[in-house]
Nucleic acid binder design. Structure first.
Lengths: 138, 138
DNA sequence: AGATATTTTGAAAAAATTTGTCAATAATGA
DNA sequence: TCATTATTGACAAATTTTTTCAAAATATCT
């Protein structure tokens, strides 16, 4: 269990459940839902109740350990570990595969907003289209 | 009622409810929720049931008339008329104000994806931060 | 225009996701 | 180790979205 041995974030009480949630998030390279995390902890033999998963995720998001990702046409919210680097994804509209993007267009971009005073603190970008497999199929 | 007189999309049966939904979407410059559309139709004197609003929206999205927008930390899905032009928004994390963006970083950008075969058909971008009013307040 | 066939809507119920409650449990500090 | 405080399980409730089906509206055909 990687999360058990890794450095634990400061000021966060270490519990079995939180470790299990973090391990599940680590285990998935891509953003996953609370339900998926719950299922994952069950499979790993350290079952965490769904309501607890939500609470833990909310807590982690507030602490900056985890990031909530808005994915188009996903009816559930998705979460991923905050690796403290920009990360965006391309989503296949057919098979829902999620493919990470290695660069970011916002690096050299100044947005034009009607509100001059808007302070941008972050952004969320998502590409969609057809992945290699699905594009080939038609 | 603007939507009543405007060109009606081809192959789409014209009903009072669909017109009311489209009018509500037209009336709002920004993406709005199904519940907001429902309330708007009521206020306009052409009340449409919430379930119908969802059905109509789903239908319009499939037809390409309307776009579903993924907004971070919004518990409801938001919709806007497809004006067939890129449109992105900045969202204030404090007051939830939505401010349209007049340019787009994806115009001159080639994404680096692990999947070489991925065909990008669109994208969704959202900035977040503090709007002029909220930033000033601290 | 009128009758018919097909869609679409209202109305309500159900499903799915997320949040809240509270007693019991577990983790941290003295 | 014991006490204090935070956290979890278990369930209930709230919210958003989807489904169902008879009734109503719309388009089509003559």
């Amino acid at each position: 269990m990687a999360a058990a041995e890794r450095d634990w974030p400061d000021g966060i009480k270490k519990t079995k459940q939180r470790q299990a949630v973090l391990t599940a998030l680590e285990g998935s390279g891509n953003p996953i839902s609370a339900a998926a995390i719950c299922a994952q902890t069950e499979k790993a033999g350290a079952a965490v109740w769904l309501s607890t998963v939500y609470r833990v995720l909310e807590f982690f998001v507030r602490k900056g350990v985890v990031t909530k990702v808005a994915v188009l046409n996903s009816d559930m919210a998705l979460y991923e570990i905050n690796r403290f680097q920009h990360k965006h994804y391309a989503v296949c509209v057919r098979c829902r595969k999620i493919i990470p993007m290695d660069n970011c267009p916002m690096e050299k971009f100044v947005p034009k907003l009607a509100d001059d005073g808007f302070q941008v603190t972050g952004h969320n970008l998502e590409l969609y289209g057809y992945c290699g497999d699905c594009g080939a199929k038609g």
